[in-house]
Design a binder for these strands. Structure first.
Lengths: 203, 203, 203, 203
DNA sequence: CATGAATGAGAGTTCATTCAT
DNA sequence: GATGAATGAACTCTCATTCAT
């Protein structure tokens, strides 16, 4: 019994090691830089070994996405603690953007990359994402309930705010922010966030 | 005399056929799916033939991007005709989003795809993009001048609106809109656009 | 008749232009740099046109070799004028080496490059080469006749001297002279030539 | 235990097989005729397999060169044993030429072929070559020290002798010896060697 | 459990050559 | 006489994946 457990644990550790290496490569060299061979090299195992822990490359990819989703959830945790829904909403937005700018690769993985999204294999990640999203919508609803907004369409409000945040981060992640001079970018992001908050307050 | 013209036309047609094939592949299988060999196969020519029309792969890519940029500009032309700046601004936004939803592949090419952006070879496309963007910012400024906004920070207003529109379209293009049931998506997009317009009116 | 002649002349001019371009490319980028396309580009004609003047690539190659052989012969002409056989022999050697060091690419073409030597197409070049060589052997023989050498084996003497000169030049042309520091190379070549002359005088 | 050894041996055998095939192709079709695909075909493996044993094409080339250098050194070993410097020098020359005539392809590889000579990757071969050359020069020096030569310029003497030997072998390797009828070639080589030795004795 | 050897497919490119026009 | 379009084969190299050991 203990043996089985240990084996199980060791297996999990190996999977994690593979994931860590993959994530590392992903951050360093982008999507193209992640190849089975590269991962194998990084963890100092043979390419074949990878297949003992993951069926194929896409499985690693999904696991990576899940990992990113979990990290993102953790990043929003501090915001979740705020009781006041309006403050909480602002904090969520701030942290969401912060996450995206701090971990562009992970954000990319979650919200931009083209991947076989439809595949059911990615369920875990999907569920996690939906939970986070639900929590966001609920916070908007709470704001409505507490009369922070006159509008009562929680979904549209949430979607609109998300559009802004996603658009903002995406421009950084995929470098369309180059439209603006480097020294103004950060300030612009901050100002735009303030502006959307102020705008939202009028809803 | 006519011969030269015909030849010229045929050459142009061939270039277009290559571009069309490339775009098609791009839509179907994403950037990775576009290979010289693939294109060649699609148009039923040998791989070498492609090189008679485009120097290398990236040139095809740039041509594609330029084409997309031109189409997008054309798509926004009708909006440009409106005299009233506030109405013009709304029209620009509407058309921008409309373009993105109607031509997700082109939008992707322009605003999402990872590509050798820094390369100067893509100058034409870049210039075109900047012109369009400048026109957008000028319209915002015109709105300010005509007292449609109290805020006078044209750049931030423009950026914020762009963030929203880009975020919205991006979710469709890269299928993160799957978070929402299919039958609600379009309505949500419309509602969100209305909402951002209403919000903007309070600036 | 005049027309035929003009045509003939024009054809010859074109062949020469092709050859010049080929030679130019050969000098600039080495053997690999000479491709039908490259030549065509250089003379601003289409690749197909080349085939109207030369059957295939190897024919150009042979013509090039002949050209090189003629240039080399011309280079040795001044030596041929000397009456005294011993002085003439020295001059031939000096000029031979001089030619090789000044035109390493041509020397390569003539004496080093692997080519379908056996092919009869190269006859012209071959004949020219033999003539030059015969003249060299005759000069050795003349030295013998005038008692500059005690040995009477003209062939072996000629061959030995040629070995030295060819070895010397070859080391430069194919860069095995790198064995020696750059600043000493030229001096070494000169000294060695003096040495072989002095040695020869003892024969 | 034995397994590791066997694997190691098998790997080495495979590397050797690749090298042999490469050398074979090299002999048959010259440098241009050696391609990864060709080698793969020759050993009846897939092209990719080659890359499991050699990083890239140039590595194979370097390995080949090194092998040739080692064989050549071995070929000269017997000469090295002779105590008398003058006899040793003659033996070195004889063996050098003998090596070149017996293994024209290897000689070509070492002393004629155009290759990325400057590359440091070829260090091993380079070092080996320099050692051999140093030994040769030292022998000349020893001859000087023992008054076999009056001249004291070891470098020039060595270089001159090398020029002769290299030129002689080169003519055979690159077939310029065709200038002479086949039945005389060998004799000519022998005679010329005798002649250069006799000449050297007068230095 | 892990390996290492191997594969087949595919990438972007270049080339000599042909041929209808 | 000249062109330009096209081909097919070749090039080096990388990759995900499989499988006997």
């Amino acid at each position: 019994m203990g043996i089985t457990q240990r084996k199980e644990r060791e297996k999990e550790e190996m999977r994690q090691r593979i994931l860590d290496a993959a994530l590392h490569l992903f951050r360093e060299k982008g999507y193209e830089g992640v190849s089975i061979r590269n991962i194998a090299e990084a963890i100092e195992y043979s390419p074949g070994t990878i297949y003992l822990y993951y069926k194929d490359k896409s499985e690693i990819f999904y696991a990576l996405q899940y990992e990113a989703a979990a990290l993102k959830r953790d990043h929003l945790l501090s915001a979740a603690l705020l009781e006041n829904p309006w403050e909480r909403l602002q904090a969520i937005g701030r942290q969401y953007i912060d996450f995206g700018l701090k971990h562009p690769d992970l954000y990319d993985l979650l919200f931009i990359i083209r991947s076989p999204m439809e595949s059911i294999e990615n369920q875990d990640c999907w569920i996690l994402g939906q939970a986070t999203h639900a929590f966001f919508v609920e916070t908007v609803q709470a704001c409505i309930d507490h009369r922070y907004f006159k509008s009562t369409d929680a979904d549209t409000i949430a979607f609109t705010l998300w559009c802004h945040a996603h658009g903002l981060v995406s421009m950084f992640v995929r470098e369309r922010i180059r439209m603006y001079p480097e020294e103004r970018r950060e300030q612009l992001a901050r100002d735009s966030f303030e502006m959307i908050i102020k705008m939202a307050a009028t809803l």
